[in-house]
């Protein structure tokens, strides 16, 4: 017995919900970035699962989209962490509740 497409999609939905939980309920800026990374990774799992269960001609589109998505999430992580460092230098904290103005 092999796992079906639905099993992979449910695992992916669970991973997405956990990422959403981390992004919504934590106060720390780096935790929010970790949650966003988890949500992007869950979307990648969806791409690969749909690619695997595609009908026979089997184009490689799913793998390509997953590769581009990984590259874009790497860029997002780099810019997000740079923003955390820049804001920390100004406010001396990483608690997002205390970031109350953007003007420096």
């Amino acid at each position: 017995m092999t796992p079906t497409l639905q099993a992979f999609l449910i695992v992916s939905a669970g991973l997405f919900s956990i990422g959403l939980l981390a992004a919504l309920s934590r106060r720390h800026a780096i935790f929010i970035l970790i949650g966003i990374e988890m949500m992007l990774a869950a979307a990648n799992l969806n791409f690969i699962a749909f690619w695997h269960f595609a009908p026979p001609p089997h184009p490689s589109t799913g793998v390509m989209i997953a590769i581009f998505s990984i590259a874009i999430s790497a860029a997002e992580a780099a810019v997000g962490l740079a923003m955390v460092i820049a804001v920390y230098r100004h406010y001396r904290t990483t608690n997002v509740d205390q970031f109350n103005q953007l003007k420096g």
Binding site: S17, I18, L20, L21, A23, L24, S25, R26, R27
Partner: peptide, 9 residues
């Protein structure tokens, strides 16, 4: 810990 996040997730 923000519990409304748990509910939404």
């Amino acid at each position: 810990f923000n519990w409304s996040g748990v509910v939404i997730a």
